[in-house]
């Protein structure tokens, strides 16, 4: 199908983009990499009057280390995330997530800011942000505002962004030597959106996980922090009995609606399986490679 008619303006600065967004408001859409937006326009899921192209703004480029954080510009493409040495060394979960995001041709244009603003509940990067307790920095003509990832995703394709705000960057805590993370998912075809997936972060001491953050995607209208499962795993030897308790806790953590892949029972089963696999993998992760 063809997109409906709309206007197009390429913003020549961040301030220009903010002004356009303030002027045209909710009738406009921000165009970053366009890898989700242009598909939804082809389906005519929305009919904006104006697209504001921010894809060439230098203010949104770059990955930098700042004290205990790595700041990732919103315009960073998935391909750049997957190749960046700072990401590999300090935020390895993002590096691990990249191969799961669509396909090379899409990763070359899709951006982290766009993925977070679109907030697909089956997408990898929103779940990574929640698992890593990232901070999303939103800008507007009124200034900048910092939003914790756990408060950013508020519903199906709905975020805490105000209509005049654009994501500027995302800040990720630098991984410490005892911290590990894992991302895995189940999809019909490599690169498709996940039927279900999990991002797991924890401090690992031998066979014991501390303060784990277990975040599922593709099982609800937003990334879900499974706090019951996290509590069941916290501070205990992650043996089969502990994993089973954590899996049981998922019954309360998750309330998955059915979707095109199957009903709630399927989603629950996938989540239980993924949890066990993720715990097994995080325990065996190569410490030297991460140090």
């Amino acid at each position: 199908m063809k997109a409906p008619p709309f206007g197009y303006v390429r913003a020549n600065s961040m301030d220009h983009a903010f002004r356009l967004l303030a002027e045209y408001g909710e009738g406009s859409k921000v165009l970053a990499g366009g890898q989700s937006l242009l598909a939804t326009l082809a389906f005519r899921l929305s009919e904006p009057s104006l697209l504001i192209d921010i894809s060439r703004l230098s203010e949104l480029a770059g990955i930098t280390r700042q004290d205990d954080f790595v700041r990732v510009g919103a315009g960073t493409t998935h391909t750049m995330l997957g190749r960046d040495s700072l990401i590999q060394a300090h935020v390895p979960l993002l590096n691990d997530a990249v191969p799961y995001i669509a396909h090379t041709a899409i990763r070359n244009r899709g951006t982290i800011g766009g993925a977070l603003a679109f907030a697909d509940p089956a997408a990898e990067l929103p779940a990574c942000c929640v698992a890593l307790d990232a901070t999303i920095i939103a800008g507007s003509s009124r200034g900048e505002r910092r939003i914790r990832a756990s408060a950013f995703f508020v519903g199906l394709f709905v975020t805490a962004l105000e209509p005049d705000e654009i994501i500027i960057a995302v800040e990720f805590p630098v991984v410490r030597t005892d911290e590990r993370s894992v991302l895995m998912e189940i999809a019909r075809r490599s690169g498709d959106y996940a039927m279900a997936g999990v991002a797991l972060w924890a401090r690992v001491d031998g066979l014991v996980l501390h303060a784990p953050r277990v975040v599922f995607f593709g099982v609800d209208d937003r990334p879900v922090l499974a706090s019951g499962a996290g509590t069941a795993l916290d501070g205990k030897r992650a043996d089969a009995a502990t994993v089973e308790l954590a899996q049981t806790a998922l019954d309360r953590d998750l309330d998955p609606p059915g979707d095109q892949h199957g009903g709630p029972a399927l989603k629950r089963q996938l989540a239980r399986t993924l949890l066990a696999r993720a715990v097994a993998q995080i325990l065996t992760q190569d410490k030297v490679a991460r140090a």
Binding site: Y8, G34, A42, D53, S55, T104, I106, R109
Partner: peptide, 14 residues
């Protein structure tokens, strides 16, 4: 780099 041509607006390619 390779891209999906259907997910790129010609208008954005100046």
């Amino acid at each position: 780099v390779i891209v999906r041509g259907c997910l790129v607006l010609a208008a954005s390619l100046d």
